[in-house]
């Protein structure tokens, strides 16, 4: 690529909002409203509820619907602890030894709504599927423990950024039970068109699940080598600051 000569040429090199121009000291109207539109999409992704009927129709099969102990969105955002356990009186019939998939709203129901069913189809999964609302990642431990599942795969909406409001995360946990830590899971993140494509995500998850069955664990002990088999994938998004 040739070296930039104009300010606006910087845009060729990055997806960041560079070379926006100036209206006095502010950004020009067009750039300002483009930002507002992206923020609005992210806000809507956080607050739009999962449409269960549509999800079941796309899934084309039955799925038990459960909710976390967080009764509403405001409580869910303020009390992550409640989002990690099931609502009182939740009954889940045991299916000992199963591998269950949970479709969860997380912080972007839109991600789950748009991409979870495609991913399940691409995985060729025939075990039980559940749908969980007001859910954090660790809700899968409570669900999996009650199922007596050998493993649970949580497909959950990730915290929306301005560039993507529909990123799905997939968290795989062997022998789920309450108290599992994130170090005991494997994660494939940023699943969406333009991010990690469904086909590639399915490839990596199948690889992880096969390896999980062989070694009998997930997490830091199960090193994800699928990336080198699918070399186009970009590095994991580190946080750089606080672990959450």
């Amino acid at each position: 690529m040739t070296a930039p000569a104009q300010w606006r040429d910087l845009r060729r090199h990055t997806t960041a909002r560079v070379a926006l121009g100036r209206a006095g000291n502010a950004v020009p109207t067009e750039a300002h409203l483009a930002f507002q539109a992206d923020h609005a999409a992210a806000r809507d992704a956080v607050h739009t509820p999962l449409v269960i009927a549509d999800l079941l129709a796309t899934l084309g099969r039955t799925a038990q619907v459960v909710q976390s102990a967080a009764p509403d969105r405001v409580t869910f955002l303020r009390r992550p602890d409640l989002g990690r356990r099931l609502a009182p009186d939740t009954m889940i019939p045991p299916m000992p030894g199963c591998l269950a998939i949970v479709i969860a709203d997380g912080l972007s129901a839109i991600a789950a709504q748009c991409h979870a069913c495609d991913l399940i189809a691409a995985l060729g999964h025939s075990g039980p599927v559940l749908i969980a609302t007001q859910a954090r990642v660790a809700l899968g431990d409570d669900i999996g423990a009650r199922l007596q599942a050998r493993a649970v795969l949580m497909l959950i909406g990730e915290r929306p950024g301005l560039s993507s409001a529909d990123s799905l995360g997939a968290y795989l946990t062997w022998l789920p039970r309450i108290g599992r830590t994130d170090a005991e899971r494997n994660c494939v993140s940023n699943i969406r068109p333009g991010g990690l494509e469904i086909a590639e995500a399915a490839f990596r998850l199948r690889w992880l699940m096969e390896r999980m069955e062989r070694v009998g664990l997930t997490g830091v002990g199960l090193k994800d080598e699928s990336k080198t088999l699918y070399p186009a994938f970009d590095p994991q998004h580190g946080d750089g600051r606080f672990v959450r």
């Binding site: 990055t14 960041a16 909002r17 560079v18 100036r22 930002f35 998004h237």
Partner: peptide, 24 residues
């Protein structure tokens, strides 16, 4: 941060423009 949008950490901070505003 370019345009207040940190494309790595996925959060909004202040932009270069914001500091121009504040200085002025």
């Amino acid at each position: 941060v370019p345009g207040a949008d940190d494309v790595m950490l996925s959060y909004q901070s202040t932009s270069f423009h914001d500091s121009l505003y504040l200085r002025a």
